[in-house]
Amino acid sequence: MLLSVLQEKEAGGFVVIQDTASYSGRQLLKYYINCAIKSEEIVHVLGFEVPEQEIRKGLDRNYVHLFHFHNAYSDPLGWTKQSSFRVKHFTTPHIIQLVNKTQNAKATILVIDSLSWVLRHHNPAVICQELQKLKRAEGSIRMTFGLLHKDLHQQGIVGSICHLASTVISVAPLDIVDSAVAKTTQRKKSGKVMQEDNFFSIKDDLILSIQNKPSQSGHVKADLDTNEGDPASNLTFNLRLSEAEREAKEKVALPFVFSQEKKSALLRPSQSSGQIMYEPDASDDFDEEDPDDDLDV
């Protein structure tokens, strides 16, 4: 699933890559940028956090002309009035205008590096609305990628942003050098949710390799899951029978066990209906003349 994120067919996809200080998700983001330009898609990066060179490093040389960087790193707040793109320009019309400057019929991929920076300078509710508008600008933007440092924000903000996303990838470090774990949650438009955990590593030349789960820890985890889940696991009595015990049990003849014929005879619905036989006696004195004889009228 980690590999197929870019192949998303539904328009207006929004991918959030969540990371923390202990493992950066930018390398994974760069991997997606590289994949996108290699499949000849135009990529626009809104860079707030790192300079252009750092993003460009490692990208495929042959396709670099498809890569566009909008520099808000050197002068994000417009103090020196040098850069054309600033943090306050983070509005849907402005972004669409930027993207449409490169004359191209094909819809592009927008990369926001990072959402955390934008969230610091805008009202989170407004950012959510802008992101929703970007999702709907299907004509010019096919997909939006955003990097989010989740340890910098309140849980509610992270939750709200991820609620909008069609795919959320959370990366976390592993004990093994150079590799990390990615938890991918994908939500289809139909409401179907898919989840997957991958162990991966990315080299400097932006090649992603997905590894099999480290065998030992994976096994232990699976075992734990089944143990915790079984409601009949921690009983104080024995609920199960061994094969020998079962045989012994089946040999015991139970009382009131009928033969097969008798059982089916009893189960068959009887054809004749019952009759009530009643013979009136002296106390059932019924007077035809006065039916209300027994009432105190």
């Binding site: 509710a125 959510c128 609305q129 509610g156 903000i157 939750g159």
Partner: peptide, 13 residues
């Protein structure tokens, strides 16, 4: 009540 309604119930304590 979600942020898209311009409500900050979800974003702020």
């Amino acid at each position: 009540g979600s942020a898209l309604w311009g409500d900050d119930l979800c974003c702020s304590e």
